[in-house]
């Protein structure tokens, strides 16, 4: 499909959803419009609220807070994941000993950690960052671990025959391989950094998109909830788009889907 066609169809889906939403909230098609409006608000009211967010400028502070929490969680979680991934992949014995604990920690639902983090790090951004870090860390950790473990034995043997020492093997073979695995999970890890931030804000804070949505919910302001979700979705798409740009630059050596694989 051509790009312009694709965008046309994508927009059409959005328009259709808004049209149906608007219709059910205006005419008694499925239920009494008053009731529908109470539970779902109306698209025009939601758009007006979003406009108000930006017109009054009140949303920028929240966006900025959520963005910084997301970025901090991503960077700290990634650094930790890379270090731990390399360390365990290169030390099979340590890895075997720690294996059940890693699995245990990873299986833990992070939401239960949120209150503890608030106790430890306060209600400011750091408790949200910590929540995001616990999510990002494991994704990056498993990716890097895999990347180091799954380096092709032939590439490794070839590099050693070329005369590479351990440090050079790390730089020219292990590192790029681990990085490519990490980037393949980049969308997921950035996404989870954001989830950590928003969930943390939702559970207790004084700023951020999660806080905005939570505030609206506590006063049954459905329009506010939907407006918050619209801003959040737009924010997610923006971040995902930035990740795609970064990916295209960093993974130029990879075959694109559809290119022949020889």
């Amino acid at each position: 499909m051509k790009r312009s066609h694709l965008i046309f169809w994508q927009l059409l889906v959005a328009v259709a959803i808004f049209a149906i939403w608007h219709a059910v909230a205006t005419w008694p098609i499925l239920a009494d419009p008053k009731k529908v409006q109470f539970f779902f608000s109306t698209p025009l009211a939601v758009m007006a609220r979003v406009y108000e967010f930006f017109a009054s400028g009140s949303i920028w502070r929240h966006l900025w807070i959520t963005l910084s929490e997301t970025l901090l969680a991503f960077v700290i979680g990634s650094l930790g994941g890379i270090a731990a991934g390399f360390w365990l992949a290169r030390n099979p014995r340590v890895s075997a000993v720690l294996d059940p604990y890693v699995k245990m920690l990873n299986a833990l639902p992070r939401v239960v950690l949120a209150p503890i983090f608030m106790l430890w790090f306060g209600l400011g951004i750091w408790s949200k960052v910590a929540l995001g870090v616990t999510l990002v860390f494991f994704i990056v950790f498993f990716a890097v671990y895999q990347g180091v473990k799954e380096v092709s034995q032939t590439i490794l043997a070839n590099a050693r025959m070329l005369g590479m020492n351990d440090r050079q093997l790390f730089r020219h073979v292990y590192w790029p391989s681990a990085l490519s695995w990490m980037f393949s999970s980049l969308h997921a890890s950035v996404g989870f950094a954001l989830v950590g931030a928003v969930v943390g804000e939702y559970m207790g804070s004084a700023a951020g998109l999660g806080y905005v949505i939570h505030e609206a919910e506590s006063t049954f302001d459905v329009t506010g909830v939907f407006a918050g979700m619209v801003v959040l979705s737009a924010f997610v798409i923006f971040i995902d788009w930035m990740v795609t740009l970064a990916e295209n630059r960093l993974l130029a050596w990879r075959p694109q889907a559809g290119e022949r694989a020889t």
């Binding site: 092709s152 032939t154 590439i155 043997a157 070839n158 050693r160 025959m161 005369g163 790029p176």
Partner: peptide, 19 residues
């Protein structure tokens, strides 16, 4: 590793992340 030897492998051995 035998330093005087160069080895051309049966399978692909180029580093895919390098030109």
């Amino acid at each position: 590793i035998s330093k005087p030897c160069g080895y051309l492998f049966q399978a692909d051995a180029l580093m895919p992340w390098k030109t």
